[in-house]
Design a protein around this nucleic acid. Structure first.
Lengths: 207, 207, 207, 207
DNA sequence: TATGAATGAGTTTTCATTCAT
DNA sequence: CATGAATGAAAACTCATTCAT
């Protein structure tokens, strides 16, 4: 089986894999892990199930790969918070980036949320190590900034959680938001930014 | 089949049903709709599958009943926002109540989030009608308050979404939070309140 | 259990039994033995399943009883073929009676046909003994009549089979006939008589 | 699933399908739709149930396919009644062909009878359209012949019904016939022909 | 590489029947 | 008499996965 080899993938193999991952993302995010069948994924990827399983040895591997890529994606904006920038600006830029993530990658957001929701049972905990590391370092950075009086005193954990919650909400709870708000999602993301950025700016700007 | 009758339930029936619902909440919230089997639910409720199906005609009914009860629970704090109270206080009390909900009913929160996450496909849309109605009326109330200058001008939709997001996050993303924060959940909920209430108070209090 | 006692039934018990049998006839004839559930029968008889099973110890007994009553009904017209009457008239009267049976008891006809169709596996063969006896005696009678030149020479077995086939067809294949003929069943039975009686009269009348 | 494709079947697929259909015909005709389980059919076809379901997506499809093939078979002799032939001969040939059908395909006959018996609930009504069309055209033909005095005046509907009834009876009521007549079925079919053909010839031949 | 074919385990549900009250 | 409650067996199907070609 291909997925057990350690040789580098050919260009064609990489192309196939990304086609499959795209289909899997669609199906997994719409149905959850158990609700998604590899048949449906194979169908969405326009190939036979055995051919799919040639590229990914099982359903788990497919799922893990997606989850891992998503975590990577999630991490980037966090990593980009610069120690050297203006603290309030840096955080606001982070919020904007997270909102863009939600807008541009809602399926990834929902996939990730679904995994957390059921208790992160399927994902290898090792997957979360990079997140942990970056998270801890940014926590330290926020504490520094607060200690230096460059942002108001906030518990950095809860600050980050509330940023995550408010930005990811628009992707994860899209179905509910569409029920309650008449606007299109594109408009809503604009509104979200107009609401959230000033809110956090007000919260964080020292007097 | 018992579940097809419209007669009132006997005491013993209510007892069995609530045993089953308790088990179902546990299993559904841990595995999602598709990941949960009525076998597992029956096992958790310490009864045979057909015995369970004597009380609930199928998996759907069990799920709908839980979802409906959850929505009811979710609605209450929102309904209790009083037109006659102090606006900022009312909203802060609402935040506290939502946080208590997350703390005391995390499984319900996750069940609901799971349904929204995959697009509210399973729930009868009629179920959401009461939510819609209360939501709309509170939106109007928030607009009034803002128009009267009793709270700062905020888009009421986004205000509510951000409150929901931040409060429910502690239940829905518990698995992640436990990974990243060393504290116990009880402590975290206290911290969350200490963070969120001042944040919204600052945001909303007119100068 | 009541059905194992040998004591005579009370009036109330007989009433219950015939209510049940009526419901069972309806359900069995519409769904076949396996397609009919005693739940559905109990529901049609407006009683609980255990109450039904108090009167009939199991599904088989219910079915056998119906089948036995049907055979009884079927036999009567055959028995009434009189040695002393005019042979052609007697046979024509028999045809008319069989047609009336089909018209007035189509469900019984279909129940019986259904049993024969799947090979008379469920019915006790003893049930068919009376039929056998009467059949044989009438075969002998028909042979006599033919030998005496009072009807044309016909194989008596095939004569009876063709009479049975043509008369029962209107009950057993009602669904098909309603598809193909625009007339109401009542009208069709009149037409059937107008067709069949002259046909057999022509066939049997000696020149 | 194989059965969802529209591509032409391979040789091996056709072989498997006909093995399964043969087993299904056996089991369905012996037990009716509800009495037949796909387990029993799979067993009769010497394969596992999922393997069977790989070739036919569900029980219904299997049944429909058999019913459709049977209707096809049933139609052929009717279609072959030739406008140009001698009317009485044509009808007698039709009777002979129908009898051959009953003799050579008794299980198909019983399958079909079983479906009609419970009210043609399972079969798609579209299935019966071809029958309707041919039936109507032959009705018209019989009326023509009668109007031209080439056969005696008969109600064509009832004429066809009585032919169907008498010929199919030997297949559909085989179990009863074997109880009442000592002869083998092969012999009985000969006797049936010797009885029915002259009967209809006498009925139809104009004087 | 790729696919048709097959499998075993599991899932939801139905049903005849029993039992305690 | 009557019923609510429960059960065991089986039915219809699904699905991740494997295998031969």
């Amino acid at each position: 089986m291909l997925s057990q080899r350690s040789e580098p993938l050919t260009r064609i193999q990489r192309a196939r894999r990304s086609e499959i991952l795209e289909a899997a993302l669609e199906i997994f995010s719409q149905n959850g892990y158990r609700g998604a069948s590899i048949n449906k994924i194979a169908e969405a990827a326009q190939m036979s199930t055995p051919r799919l399983l040639y590229h990914f040895s099982d359903k788990e591997e497919l799922y893990s790969e997606l989850l891992s890529a998503t975590l990577q994606l999630w991490l980037e904006p966090l990593e980009q918070i610069e120690e050297t920038g203006d603290p309030v600006d840096e955080i606001c830029i982070y919020i904007q980036r997270k909102l863009e993530m939600s807008r541009d990658h809602p399926r990834e957001s929902r996939l990730f949320a679904g995994e957390v929701l059921v208790g992160i049972k399927r994902a290898d905990t090792a997957l979360f190590e990079p997140l942990r590391a970056v998270f801890d370092s940014k926590i330290a950075l926020l504490e520094d900034w607060a200690a230096q009086g460059r942002i108001t005193a906030q518990d950095p954990h809860h600050l980050l959680y509330s940023i995550w919650a408010t930005t990811q909400h628009y992707a994860d709870f899209e179905a509910q938001i569409e029920m309650l708000s008449p606007q299109k999602m594109a408009k809503l993301f604009e509104g979200a930014e107009a609401h959230l950025v000033p809110m956090y700016r007000k919260l964080l700007t020292p007097t």
